[in-house]
Design a protein around this nucleic acid. Structure first.
Lengths: 144, 144, 144, 144
DNA sequence: GTGGTCTAGACCACA
DNA sequence: GTGGTCTAGACCACC
């Protein structure tokens, strides 16, 4: 698992950590009961405060994505990927709703938006999307 | 033109004002050289601080969407709707890119996302989704 | 609204603050859109760190019980008391389940437990319960 | 006797061990002077640290529930079940007091709580609630 | 003034 | 070693 913090990203640091771990669980990269790096470990690796990591872990715990046991560490919860996927899908629907309705005001139709998405699909097929735009990164932590 | 502030909206107030005026210009609801309500007028109507409106107007001015004449007020700039539309389209593309790539991590394909959008299209056709669920609103200003 | 912190209480401070505000909303003592004391204000009144109050407010916000607007303050959300009551009832059921099943191991029947509760009911009717056992208290804040 | 550790349980491990042994004594499952598994034995069986079990045993000893003889092991004390039962009853009363008074703030009456308990009673009669939903367990030790 | 984020410490309970 | 709580500062965006 690789967590990276980007200065460009307007999200606060704790949120970036939260999102990346959530995604890693959602994608199956991290599986149930797998141990996460300790908060101190990860804080050190990312050169940020323990508190910031703590907050990310806390929110993950509140969402039921991980669980923490004092003295033992933090672990991936036994939440099914299905559930995470369904939640993500709801999130996607919500955002698309906002996007289409705001675009409509500018005379941009839903069909036009679909065309844009189709365009993205093709770009992805060419397959350089992952490395095309190297993010500016603070640091990373490898944890396996 | 009707500006409404919603407490549900996480956007700061000045941003809500900014966006709604921008959209009104983009949709043609407000046309070139049309006079906007004065800062004080709008502040009073929305029961918020003058400086908040001032900031919204300032950003609109910086974007070239409105212009201000000291002593006479603020007016819609002669910016073509086409230009606003193109900008919005770029914004849409950017957001869709983020959305699809983050969804991909959860195993949600682009085709699936398109399906979601298609679903939105149908919903909009059957009902009057825009007016079905009236947002809770802090205050509004009618200025036409 | 009166928040008090007790040293006797094993709950961490942020939790005590959280619970008391939640209860105040649930009881209707605080009503929708009512302004809460600012985090700095309350921190000062209780002589504890701003961070601790912040955390209590954050959890209340995550639960949808209050909402915060940068620059304006924190306010009671428009969550219906009904919903809070239903949640509390679920909590009660959960705790009773644990209690009865653990008591059963000691040969304490459910009927016996009901008798205990009936006993509490009578005590309460005599009506000195509120002032009989003055809690040891750190400090309080009155906010209206 | 079967001690199980659950990761769902927020109680620390030593407490889970403590409670289960206490309950086993209270229910008569373990009788006076019966030998408990040795600390090392139990630690191994539960795959946890020896010092965790040690702490559980220590607290049981402090409560007068077991006694240890260096070199021979730990044994159930000759504490009457009646006494344990009475203590448990006090504990139940304390918890019910807290529960009813906190529920009262949400407009939940004692009678309503009694109804909830009655509901639990019926459920238990129809099914075998104890075994219906097998807890996810870390490990177990059989010692009889 | 308000809340939102972050730091660099500290002490505690648990394993 | 682990996580959980708390302090006393700081800087930022917003109103």
């Amino acid at each position: 698992m690789f967590v990276v913090l980007s200065k460009e990203n307007p999200d606060p640091m704790y949120r970036q950590v939260y999102l990346q771990i959530r995604d890693a669980v959602g994608s199956g990269e991290l599986s149930a009961d797998e141990k996460l790096p300790s908060i101190r470990e990860m804080a050190k690796a990312l050169s940020i405060s323990v508190i910031t990591i703590k907050r990310a872990y806390l929110e993950l715990e509140n969402e039921g994505i991980i669980y923490s046991r004092t003295g033992s560490g933090s672990f991936v919860a036994d939440i099914s990927q299905k559930k995470l996927r369904a939640e993500k899908l709801r999130e996607v629907r919500r955002e698309l709703q906002a996007l289409t309705s705001s675009a409509a005001k500018f005379g941009i139709s839903i069909d036009e938006i679909i065309q844009v998405i189709e365009g993205l699909k093709e770009k992805r097929h060419v397959g350089r999307s992952k490395h095309r735009k190297p993010q500016k990164v603070l640091s990373g932590v490898h944890a396996e």
